[in-house]
Simulated assay, not measured.
Amino acid sequence: MNTASTAGNKIVLGYIIGGLGSCFFSTKSILIKLALIENVDAITTLTWRMIIALPIFILIGYSGYRYRISKGEDIKLSPKAFLQVGAVGSLGYYVASYLDFAGLNYISAQFDRLIMLTYPIFVVLIGVIFLGRKLNAKLILALSLSYFGLVVIFVRDLQIDGQSTITGALLVLAAALAFAVYQVLAKPHIDRIGARLFTSIAMSAAGVLVIGHFLIANDLSDLILPQKSMMIMFAIATISTVLPAYLISTSIGLVGPEPTAVIGNISTIVTIGLAVSVLGEPFTLWHAIGAAMVLLGVISFTQMDKRAKEAAARKMQTPS
């Protein structure tokens, strides 16, 4: 198998993993809405999420570390590097998560997911402004198509929900920005220490901050929840946190933050389907048109990105 073919397979695998991670992650807003219906507030939900998920992250991270050591890899993780990974993880899974959870108090699950999907715009802009990356006309067109679809749904939902949604929208928009910065900062750390170890350290650091936040703001008795609420907490911790965290980190390692961010748009379809069927949220013709535009934009982007990277691999393989 030549280098170009191997690169192509790696890209396809990265897209599949990123798509799966985004689909699992898209269940989060639905489950949080169900928790809110059960009168469980944002910080309590976030705390239970981390209490359940943290041991899993630590176990998987330790096994990943031992595996890489057994392969003879020299993993250099100084105290400074450890703190850097923890800080990046706290930004993505404490700051962004708390803002997102809080925003869901004010807006629908569909609206929340659509706003969170603006984070690829921030990822791309960060790359262009700070990392010297370039956008070609076709890529801009694909992104524009995808995000114009988001605007169509956004305008319709704003009409349905009213002006009171502005507070929630601003909270979730801030969450999207925080998550975009996290994705950009995560890439070099993932390349150096691997997705499993990175995600374990990052999520563990975020978990410590979340639990500390809860202990300051709440009483321990607030963690005592009915059985139905605990089932929702378990689902949020595993289906919406552990699985997507490792899948998305792996995708970033394979194809980079921008493609991973953009392929995440496809989870719009999953969120809309769950919001309509589980939460009974409205779905109109405008939602259908917008979702179709998002999907077409994502497919166009992934195909162009895949061809560009395969061409680059072939160019490197060709003798000068």
Rank of each mutant, 00 (worst) to 15 (best):
K10Y: 04
L13N: 09
G18W: 06
G21E: 08
G21Y: 08
S22V: 09
S22C: 07
C23Y: 03
C23E: 04
F24C: 15
S26Q: 08
S26V: 03
T27F: 14
I30V: 15
T44N: 10
L46S: 12
A53M: 08
G61E: 11
G72T: 08
D74K: 15
V85N: 14
Y94K: 00
V95A: 12
V95T: 14
A96D: 03
A96S: 15
S97V: 04
Y98E: 06
D100M: 11
A102R: 07
L104E: 06
I107D: 07
A109M: 02
R113E: 03
R113W: 00
L117G: 04
Y119S: 06
V128K: 01
I129C: 09
F130A: 07
L139Q: 13
I140Q: 14
A142T: 12
S146T: 06
S146A: 15
G149I: 09
V152T: 09
D157E: 14
L158W: 10
G168A: 10
V172Y: 00
L173K: 02
L173I: 01
L185I: 05
P188Y: 01
P188L: 02
I193D: 07
R196E: 12
R196I: 00
F198S: 10
S200I: 06
A202H: 13
A202C: 10
S204I: 02
A205D: 01
G207V: 07
V208K: 07
G212Y: 08
F214V: 02
Q227L: 14
T238K: 01
T238M: 05
S240M: 06
L247D: 03
S249E: 06
A261L: 06
V262E: 03
I263F: 01
I272S: 08
E281C: 05
P282C: 08
T284L: 11
T284M: 04
H287A: 11
H287Q: 05
H287V: 10
A291N: 11
L295H: 02
V298C: 07
I299M: 12
F301N: 06
F301P: 05
T302P: 00
K309L: 13
A311W: 02
R314F: 04
R314Y: 02
P319L: 11
P319A: 08
S320F: 09
